[in-house]
Design a protein around this nucleic acid. Sequence first.
DNA 1: TTGTACGCGTTATCAA
DNA 2: TTGATAACGCGTACAA
Lengths: 359, 359
Amino acid sequence: MARTGQSTTRSPQRRPTLREVADQAGVSISTASLVYSGKQGVSPATAERVREAAEALGYAGPDPLASSLRHGRSGVVGVHLEGTLGYAFQDPYAVSVLDGLGQALDELGMGMLLVPEAPGEASHAARLVAGQALDALVFALCGPTTSALVDQVAARGIPMLGTGAPADDRVVQLRIDDRGATAALVDHLLELGHRDVAMLAMPLDPGARTGPVTVADIEAATYPDARDRALAFVDRMGPDRPMVQSASLSIDGAAEAAALLLDVSPRPTAVVAQSDLLAAGVIRAAAHRGLSVPQDLSVVGFDGVELPWFEGRLTTVEQDGRGKGRHLGDMVRRLLDGEDVPDQVHPTHLRLGTTTYPR
Amino acid sequence: MARTGQSTTRSPQRRPTLREVADQAGVSISTASLVYSGKQGVSPATAERVREAAEALGYAGPDPLASSLRHGRSGVVGVHLEGTLGYAFQDPYAVSVLDGLGQALDELGMGMLLVPEAPGEASHAARLVAGQALDALVFALCGPTTSALVDQVAARGIPMLGTGAPADDRVVQLRIDDRGATAALVDHLLELGHRDVAMLAMPLDPGARTGPVTVADIEAATYPDARDRALAFVDRMGPDRPMVQSASLSIDGAAEAAALLLDVSPRPTAVVAQSDLLAAGVIRAAAHRGLSVPQDLSVVGFDGVELPWFEGRLTTVEQDGRGKGRHLGDMVRRLLDGEDVPDQVHPTHLRLGTTTYPR
DNA sequence: TTGTACGCGTTATCAA
DNA sequence: TTGATAACGCGTACAA
């Protein structure tokens, strides 16, 4: 058991309180409070006295904890992430969303508390959410369709935002049109004359293994974004095209998975990768095999992130992660203002690059 | 002015409190509290009654805000980042440190609140720190030597940790041996026979512009890690070698800066880049010019991160970012336990790769 | 313009 | 084993 209170006999560890400042200044505690909340109605003279007293005592302003308790607001927004930080932030798209969200919250004077949920460590996230005073929880990166956190957080009356998941009435969604966007990508390849098109999917389920997937697998998928993109592919190309999922959302994983698509005969002339990171892996795998993109193989991605080491420009769906993050931030604000915020769709658009070529 | 309190006439917006649960269960409020704090001394029967009452009322457990106020601890550690999230997380090394720190804090049941300080927006970070209840503040990525936040946070009695910066007695440091590690890199190149060695430095100061730097610039640098690595270079190679700083810690920026080193005659036979990301830029710039690494140009980096798209292995200083993050987490714990934590040095080691070659 | 008094929701101490 | 009471530090009607 931790020794209670017994703060080691060090110098004035205890911080002064507003009451002491008020005493020192010879005013009442409420007057002192007014000086800090900046409301009207304190004479400049007394305000000055209070500030001097604060300075003398080393008072740094009202205790945020007490202030928050009083206001019923903590100023903190929880940001749920699927996987460890190292895994989640590996994807530049994820980073851009967080960047935009962080920027928006910054302007609101709110902070971002990270709630990573590493595989198998769900209890950590649950404990964190139970012990932290959150004003809202944002599922920033499309995770599984269901989450045990939803019930828990809803019980606390904390508003939730998602980007497609978890699917629950209590979670307000900011989606994108995964199916429409994917259809546009596939149509672009069809127009270029490609018929032998393959798909490299993001993981469909937690713990997914690299390997072929069937339409049944897709329909039963846990991740709605991966599912919808795959369904749109099937819708356009039929159920018999080569379809593989990568075990991880990473360049290395994708390069490995790409082998299952490229080392067969006949080799597809185009690959639809469900994310730019996966597309990068496909491109690397192609280069490894002496295939040039786009002459020998067309590749499309999804997200529209910067791949600074890649010469050329990926044909992809531009998702505007930063804008999406800011959009989420705006929804948080409105939710906290008591508005009734409906589900929304963030716009995307097809961006033609240098990785697709007529067949 | 926001309409005060006037919560829109919606259903039971208010969450039940412990007092209501106690009333409902027919016990005192303190007994009900004991059920949740899990201490000894509540009969199974009454505990059950309390739980039933809680269930019936939809009570989700003690309010973290009130609990924190009582305990004087928020369970939140602030993590200061230089620049926007998008900028900071672009560097895989930064991500790995945060990953390790997050992991360590997770095990402590604590959360990470991001405190990004975008250039020119220092007031946002200040406001955030003033309004949030932090148990500690970690300057996770070596920023400028001085920070206005230090005084402010110190005044609140919040312990601070840094990784070399800000330089202040009140900030406990976990450093690395930048000078020794850089010296080892340079010595490795010297042993390989290189004499014409150039350096590509990280930004030496906020707002740095890409261009040559002098020893005087280096000595006056704001970022201690960039400074120390540069000083070690000068110490080994003398003051007359080509030295350039990149305006940003990014592959693109580095590739641009590398032009100043590669497009001169005689061209250096080796480049010491102050970070792996910069080294990646140098390698790309070299490839652009038809130079092969390491035959035509040796390149060394610093950090030891994964560059998944890079075939081959960088010769670099392995910094073990995850381990360093966990080390920081451990220091946080000890600080919060009231221990007197001294400055520490995290070990690094030279890792030989495929980007250096005898001359 | 300033002061009084109460409550925000808990938890720790002590007495019963 | 349980209950009364007093903080934790602050904001805000209301009265003066």
